[in-house]
């Protein structure tokens, strides 16, 4: 029954855009309150995996269970932070308005966000240190600030499980620190967070567990066990099309 209650259980996930699968037979199970880094080279299918879990792209095969039930029944428990480039930042809206969108799922059709939703959104902006920019047009924010607005929007969703697509990409040190603090707080509140991550130097510092991906699952487990030079070499070296006969080579950094 432990398996049934897991915040996220993915089994046999296979996704293909064209003939060749981008993600193949990936299975793993996230524990409650775990910070998981999804690591792998470019084109390893990290973002694809997240999008398939969320049903944004169709999977050829595979099952996703959120706290034991299919994703469609549990949408409200799942928060999503897309890549920053996925939207047009010239859109006529301000930071607070974007964060308020995080409440739309709870509001449902036709109902408009009111004072309660806006107050909650403002609190979320405060948590990421963006309260001073609440009324700023989103195009006038720096890249890091935009990323924090996206995180605040995810916070406003008040989800139990978060999927974040490269939140650390192209942000400055201040934003990186703000994100790390936020991840720690989410963890303390017993929420589970999956983060697509690129910077290998910070993996051991940030994450409890690691999902090492290169089309298929290379490894999944506690960072100390899964984030080893040997396994990294398999994830990254294989991509380059050569394999060292001695698997102790110091690589992947």
């Amino acid at each position: 029954m432990i398996g049934a209650a897991a915040p996220l259980a993915v089994s046999g996930m296979t996704v293909a855009y064209r003939k060749k699968p981008v993600v193949q037979g990936v299975s793993f199970e996230a524990k409650k309150g775990e910070l998981i880094g999804i690591i792998g080279p470019n084109g390893a299918g990290k973002s694809t995996l997240i999008k398939a879990i969320l049903g944004l792209i169709p999977a050829l095969e595979g099952e996703v269970r959120i706290y034991g039930k299919p994703y469609k029944q549990q949408r409200k428990l799942v928060g999503y932070v897309p890549q920053r480039e996925s939207v047009d930042w010239d859109f006529p809206t301000h930071a607070l308005d974007v964060v308020t969108m995080g409440r739309y799922g709870h509001l449902g059709l036709f109902r408009r966000p009111g004072r309660k939703e806006k107050e909650l959104a403002f609190e979320c902006l405060e948590k990421v240190g963006m309260a001073a920019f609440a009324n700023r047009q989103i195009g006038q924010l720096s890249g890091g600030q935009q990323q924090r607005v996206f995180l605040a929007r995810a916070l406003a969703q008040d989800a139990a499980l978060y999927l974040m697509d490269e939140p650390f990409a192209g942000v400055d040190a201040a934003t990186e620190k703000a994100i790390v603090l936020l991840l720690d707080e989410l963890k303390r509140q017993g929420r589970t967070v999956l983060v697509v991550h690129h910077d290998l130097t910070t993996v051991t510092e940030y994450f409890d567990s690691v999902l090492l991906l290169n089309g298929e699952k290379i490894a999944f487990g506690p960072t100390a066990a899964a984030f080893t030079p040997e396994l990294l070499h398999r994830a990254y070296g294989g991509k380059l099309g050569f394999r060292m006969p001695v698997p102790t080579a110091d690589s992947g950094e």
Partner: peptide
């Protein structure tokens, strides 16, 4: 007017909207 919030959502970030269950 009725679907203002929904149209805003699909105009700005449709993928997020789908994630919300819309």
């Amino acid at each position: 007017g009725l679907l203002f919030k929904e149209f805003k959502l699909i105009s700005f970030d449709p993928a997020f909207g789908r994630g919300l269950g819309y």
